[in-house]
Design a protein around this nucleic acid. Structure first.
Length: 723
DNA sequence: TTGTTCCAGCTTTTT
DNA sequence: GCTGGAACAA
């Protein structure tokens, strides 16, 4: 048997992890140390060398992208198809289990997955029906509360009633929410995990079956698992010591959404026979970048301990640029990128990483102004668009009439004369008699309490859905979708909508038809799902790759969070300022501050060749001018690893504001304090303060009409007035 | 039903 | 200070 292909390309630590005998194993894999490689080769090793059938292997990831990549890499390494190999996301695998055992999971056969925006809508509605003041009990908070409970494995019935009003109210909402979901056959993301856990926990036969089936269980990004995910993994591998996890405590950046870094420690306790392997050789970044990142992360406490190194040399120092303001920051970054491109670099090798999405704007403006193609990640995804969700709601209602979320979404979309009053009445009946909205609508019609017009409108809606259902079965999936969007009047609705907005929506609907046409349906799926249900699940569970178009050569703009797992030759980590990064909300709490530091570590380790860190001395924030301090993380980098960038070569003799204040006659350049000047846009004003020198020189001016402003002297084009 | 106005909020995100 | 959502008026 030829195993060279599997192990030859690995370093010692990687090979050790890949070829170790079956046992509990924790691979602490630093950034860029070949984490996925180890996972892929491990699976290949087990199939080819240890003769474990692909069918007996489970691999769990967090994103569909990671799952897809892992499968295709295993396939190309083994040069075979791996259909029977279970690789998927936690949610995808959980869903699969629930579909296979709907009865034991106490779910209707027609159950559907609801995404977070569906969930929020349901909760919003519910808060209204409970007659709660939604300003006092925001739906967002309730949603957060419910998901947090589920992530911990806690059902409403497990919770004790308390005297605390807030707690009581939340519990009440949680209870009512569970009822609606059960009645509608709807399962939210957290519910998938919780129910999959309960399924195994409460059904010994099912648990036995899967414990025997899965001889090996692999987990990617283990530091991101939450309580219920880890509990589920433990059930599956109970007493078998066959859990192989890969993770990095230093890259745990999702604590705020329930990820428990502690699971890494618990793992060591729960699997006493485990082996730990550290992957510390980095194949991505220069030595300097790694050193800087290592030093920063060393400030965190309670680490498992790990230091990245590289065999490929030091590289150049990290660059630090102190911008005057956010405009200048963007200007600088874009100029550097243009230079990079002019020198033959690819646009797609350059990335601008920021802490919060709002920061992207000024970079976009500058990129647009210089006609540099760019792509912002993290916007609305395809299946999240309102018009798509509307179309899907019709399809979902056809598949399951009890789907209240979908019912409510489209009962009057497009408008068909069913007003708030009628919908309210339906909701009342639903609440009082514990019926689905569909059933309640029928009750309402039979009551004959509404006006003839409203009754007819409602009958019309129910008939429409019935008609769609009866006429659709013989059609191909894409024909069904097409039929639905036409017959429902959705296409017409958006065609009438004015201008390009509506046009875009029509195009998106056409794209949905296309997606249905291309949908790869596995007729022999063991879950026995129909094509439509499968498509709907696909839409909920894989909300569409972030716009695709990886082929275009674009500058990459994204948050540091979304950059995790990616790498770029040229990285700009922008907005390195206190209260922005680390964020305002994190600075008072050691735990959260350490997570910010890990985020910084993640950001820096994205860079392969060049790392630029920038901050602005002045930034408009919430409409107010702020003068932030440079981020503490900057101070944590040894100064010999950093080179300060000056726009033009100038002699830097720092001028402290105190000196300026003390001498009202101090002259810097051609300006002095109290000097009257005129600006093309802001008009006449008086110089209040002067800071910096050369190209960085900036002046604070009190304009007669425009107020006090800081201006960059190099760009301001001030005219000196006499007197 | 649509357009306007008002008001809160203002990290990070996948499933 | 801007944005998106909800309330309200016409």
């Amino acid at each position: 048997m030829d195993v060279t292909l599997i192990i030859d390309s690995l370093n010692d630590a990687q090979r050790q992890a890949v070829t170790a005998p079956s046992q509990a194993m924790l691979v602490l894999a630093g950034a860029g140390s070949g984490k996925t490689r180890v996972l892929v080769h491990r699976i290949a090793w087990q199939i080819q060398v240890e003769d474990i059938p692909a069918h007996s292997i489970l691999a769990v990831t967090f994103t569909n992208k990671a799952a897809k990549e892992m499968r295709s890499r295993v396939e190309s390494l083994l040069n075979m198809s791996t259909q029977s190999l279970w690789i998927g996301t936690f949610h995808g695998i959980a869903h699969r289990l629930l579909r296979r055992h709907t009865k034991q999971a106490k779910l209707p056969d027609t159950f559907q997955v609801m995404d977070s925006s569906d969930q929020l809508r349901v909760i919003k509605r519910l808060i209204n029906t409970l007659n709660l003041d939604d300003s006092k009990w925001p739906a967002r908070e309730a949603q957060w509360y419910i998901n947090a409970q589920k992530d911990e494995g806690i059902r409403a019935r497990h919770m004790l009633d308390t005297a605390d009003l807030h707690q009581r109210q939340m519990l009440r909402i949680y209870k009512a929410y569970e009822e609606i979901c059960d009645r509608s056959g709807l399962v939210d993301f957290a519910e998938l995990l919780l129910r999959a856990h309960e399924l195994l926990r409460d059904n010994q036969d099912i648990l036995d079956f899967y414990q025997q089936r899965f001889r090996q269980v692999h987990v990617d990004e283990f530091q991101d698992t939450n309580t219920i995910q880890y509990a589920w993994l433990r059930l599956l591998t109970d007493g078998k010591d066959n859990l192989f996890v890969v993770g990095d405590d230093d890259q745990s950046i999702y604590g705020w959404r329930g990820a428990k870094i502690e699971n890494l420690y618990s793992f060591q306790k729960h699997y006493p026979n485990h082996q730990v392997i550290k992957l510390e050789q980095n194949y991505r970044s220069t030595g300097t970048i790694l050193k800087a990142a290592n030093t920063i992360i060393a400030n965190n406490t309670g680490r498992m301990g790990k230091e990245l190194w590289t065999a490929t040399g030091e590289g150049e120092p990290c660059s630090l640029y102190a911008a005057f303001n956010e405009q200048d920051e963007a200007y600088f970054v874009v100029e550097r990128i243009r230079t990079w491109i002019n020198e033959g670099g690819l646009r797609s090798d350059a990335a601008i990483l920021y802490r919060s999405n709002a920061q992207s704007r000024q970079f976009e403006e500058k990129l647009m102004a210089t006609a540099t193609p760019y792509k912002v990640y993290g916007g609305l995804r395809f299946f999240d668009r309102a018009e798509i969700k509307n179309a899907l709601a019709y399809l979902r209602l056809m598949s399951n009439r009890n789907d209240d979320a979908s019912f409510e979404r489209i009962i009057n979309t497009p408008t068909r004369g069913i007003g708030a009053k009628a919908i309210d009445d339906i909701r009342c009946i639903a609440r009082d008699q514990s019926l689905s909205l569909w059933a309640s609508a029928i009750v309402l019609i039979n009551q004959r309490t509404m006006t003839a017009r409203a009754t007819n409108a409602l009958i019309g809606f129910l008939e429409l859905i019935k008609e769609l259902t009866t006429q659709a079965p013989d059609l191909e999936l894409y024909e069904k979708v097409k039929f639905v969007i036409e017959k429902s009047g959705l296409i017409e609705l958006y065609q009438k909508e004015k201008m390009d907005k509506g046009e875009e929506k029509v195009e998106n609907l056409e794209e949905l038809v296309n997606a249905a046409r291309l949908f790869d349906f596995d007729r022999e799926n063991e879950e026995g799902m129909g094509e439509l249900d499968m498509f709907l699940t696909h839409a909920a569970l894989e909300s569409g790759d972030n716009q695709g178009d990886d082929f275009d050569d674009c500058v990459q703009l994204m948050t540091i969070h979304s950059a995790k797992g990616l790498e770029f030759k040229l990285v700009f980590l922008v907005g390195m300022e206190e209260n922005l990064f680390p964020s305002q909300q994190s600075v008072d709490d050691v735990g959260r501050l350490e997570e910010e530091r890990r985020l910084c570590y993640v950001g820096m380790t994205r860079a392969m060749q060049h790392l630029y860190l920038t901050y602005a001395e002045s930034r408009r924030l919430y409409g107010r001018e702020s003068y932030p301090r440079p981020s503490r993380f900057l101070r944590e980098i040894p100064s010999e690893l950093i080179q300060e960038v000056r726009v033009r070569a100038t002699i830097n003799h720092p001028v402290t504001p105190i000196q300026i204040k003390n001498s009202s006659l101090q002259t810097i350049g051609s300006y002095k304090l109290g000097q009257r000047v005129s600006h093309a846009k802001f008009g006449e004003g008086v110089v209040l303060q002067i800071e910096g020198s050369g190209a960085q020189e900036r002046v604070q001016i009190n304009f007669k009409t425009a107020g006090v402003k800081w201006l960059m002297l190099a760009y301001a084009n001030l005219e000196v007035l006499q007197g």
